[in-house]
Structure formats: structure tokens, C-alpha cells
């Protein structure tokens, strides 16, 4: 006999039945009671929404390693079905992407692998989707002049190594803020107001996570040797269900600055980097503690893409700073 049948639903009974409905173990009558409550009572609807978010988040947290296999396989179809893969990449990113725990093996060739990754990274244009891994916490939301600063979470970063990049972020009001460099000058195109241009190619690059620490693949002006010099490198090979290999860099105890740990997932056959994660970034200048970059496009970009003129109208005011 159902203990909740025909009784008014108190808080305990409501919680039990809501969990049971989401778990798909509620009987038809109980499911109907929950459904009727949600339809008629906005307070209960909000409670159910909160529970549903908790269920989904727990599922994601505990299954992310399993999901990573499918996500990594989906990412491999980029050349065939680019649009679908872009979507899969976003989903894979949101699901925790390609961080599958596999057996570790230490190999002497970590620096050789790194050198190859660098060579391939410099061979063409790459576009990454950026996610702040602590984006949900209040501490990750920075404010500037009382307003939320443009967020790195959800940003899109296009790079042509060694020194050209465009970083697209949204400001607190949903306007797009672009910063970039063509290798010889740097610029910022805010959502409103004049465009600013500097002859210093490092100007405006502070928004790039890791940009101050010379971390490979993120600092367009940095040196890839930094990883090998300041970090212990470890290779993790692909496994049966996980086609991506990984290189894990852990900061040496005597090294200063930079993220404490860097993890790069790449295709072993092509050395193409798919995902990179920077963990425990220095917090002195604010910003997220950990960020993840996921490759969403490797198509060549227009030759003028890295110049500011490509990103605003001809009538926009441009201020040259120096």
C-alpha cells in the first residue's frame, strides 16, 4: 500500500515522491500527484526544478569519465560533419569532456611528444571554446566598475601561433568584447565605444588564462619550453574506449607562477590537441582557478582575421594608444 495515497503531500512526502518520479520508480498515481502539484503550484514547481538540477548534476559528476569516451569519439568527425561536431564539442565540453582516468605510464619521450605537439600546433589555425571550470561559483565572477567583467567562461579563442589570436567574450550586458593581436600590434574592440590599438602585441592579452605564465598553447607570445623547464611531464596513452592520449604537466616544487597542473589531450596519430585544461591558476590577478580549452575548429581563417578591421565597421572610432 502506498503510504502517500490520498494524503495531502507534506514536505517529506513531496520530496520522496519527487525523487521517485525523477528516478522513474514512482507508480502511476504518485507520478500523477507530483505532476498535478507542479502544474498547479509554482513553489512546488521550483522545488522540483531544483531537485531535477541536482539529479542531473550528480549524474554528470559521476558519469563524466564514461561520457568522455563517447565525446572523444564524436569529436573525431569534425572533418566530415563540421557543424554536428561543433555542437558535440560544446556538449562534450559541458559534460566534462575528455578527462578519462586511465593507467599511467611514464615514458622517456614526453619532451619529444611535446615538441611534436608544438610543431603541429604551429602548423595551422585553431579555434577553441573556453570554459571556466569554477564558473558557477560567485568567486569566479569578476566585477569591473561595479559591473560583471567580460567572462572567459564561454569565450571563443582563435589562434595562429606563434603570436596571433582573437579572443571573443561577452560582457555583463551580453555585448561582445574582442581582444586580439596580429603579431605586430594588439587591439580591443569593446561592445560599445572606440576601438583601441597598441603597438605592443602583448597589450590586452591579460584576459587569456595562463597568458602571464608562458604556458604553451595559451600564451601567444610565450615559449613552449616553459612547460618542459618548469613542469614534470607524464604521458598517458590512449586506452580501448578513449582514442585521445594525454600529457600531464605538474609544476615542479621549485618553479614559480603558472598553473599547478596542465593536462593536454591529443590525437596520438596526428598530434592534434583536442582539449587542454589549466588547473590551479595563480589568483593574484583574479580570474578563474581552472579553465578548459576544447578544439572546435581547425579550418584556416581569413588572412585578415587577426586584424581589428575585420571585427568592426569602418565608421567605428579607433584610438591608437602609442
Amino acid at each position: 500500500m502506498n503510504p502517500h495515497q490520498d494524503k495531502p503531500l507534506d514536505e517529506t512526502a513531496w520530496n520522496e515522491l519527487s525523487h521517485a518520479v525523477i528516478d522513474r520508480v514512482a507508480g502511476e498515481d504518485d507520478a500523477r500527484r507530483v505532476s498535478d502539484e507542479i502544474a498547479a503550484n509554482p513553489v512546488r514547481a521550483r522545488e522540483f526544478a531544483r531537485l531535477a538540477m541536482l539529479h542531473d548534476a550528480v549524474d554528470r559528476a559521476l558519469t563524466s569519465r564514461v561520457e568522455a569516451r563517447g565525446a572523444a569519439q564524436r569529436l573525431r568527425v569534425i572533418p566530415v560533419l563540421r557543424r554536428a561536431a561543433l555542437v558535440a564539442a560544446v556538449i562534450a565540453l559541458a559534460f566534462g569532456a575528455a578527462w578519462l582516468a586511465i593507467g599511467t605510464t611514464r615514458e622517456a619521450s614526453a619532451s619529444d611528444v611535446l615538441a611534436r605537439l608544438i610543431e603541429v600546433a604551429r602548423s595551422g589555425d585553431r579555434t577553441y571554446f573556453v570554459r571556466a571550470l569554477d564558473a558557477g561559483s560567485r568567486s569566479a565572477i569578476e566585477r569591473r566598475n561595479g559591473r560583471p567583467a567580460p567572462s572567459i567562461d564561454g569565450a571563443v579563442l582563435s589562434m595562429r601561433l606563434p603570436a596571433s589570436y582573437v579572443l571573443a567574450r561577452l560582457d555583463g550586458e551580453g555585448g561582445e568584447v574582442l581582444t586580439g593581436s596580429d603579431g605586430t600590434s594588439a587591439w580591443i574592440v569593446p561592445a560599445r565605444g572606440p576601438v583601441r590599438v597598441s603597438r605592443d602585441p602583448r597589450r590586452f592579452s591579460g584576459a587569456l588564462p595562463g597568458s602571464k605564465s608562458g604556458v604553451a598553447f595559451v600564451d601567444p607570445h610565450g615559449d613552449f619550453k616553459e612547460l618542459a623547464a618548469s613542469y614534470e611531464l607524464r604521458l598517458l596513452p590512449p586506452s580501448a574506449g578513449m582514442p585521445l592520449a594525454r600529457i600531464v604537466a605538474t609544476r615542479r616544487s621549485d618553479a614559480r607562477g603558472g598553473p599547478r597542473r596542465v593536462e593536454i589531450a591529443y590525437e596520438p596519430e596526428t598530434s592534434l590537441i583536442r582539449v587542454m585544461r589549466l588547473e590551479n591558476l595563480p589568483q593574484a590577478r583574479g580570474g578563474p582557478r581552472s579553465v578548459e580549452f576544447e578544439l572546435v575548429d581547425d579550418a584556416p581563417l581569413d588572412a585578415r582575421f587577426f586584424s581589428h578591421e575585420s571585427h568592426h565597421g569602418a565608421d567605428r572610432a579607433v584610438i591608437e594608444e602609442d
Binding site: 518520479v21 507530483v34 505532476s35 514547481a45 531535477a52
Partner: peptide, 11 residues
């Protein structure tokens, strides 16, 4: 489909 259409909209 545990929820009615009205409940889906409310949710």
C-alpha cells in the same frame, strides 16, 4: 512521460 503538458510548461 511522467508529467502532463501543463506540468512540463510549469517546470
Amino acid at each position: 512521460a511522467p508529467l502532463s503538458e501543463a506540468a512540463e510548461a510549469s517546470l
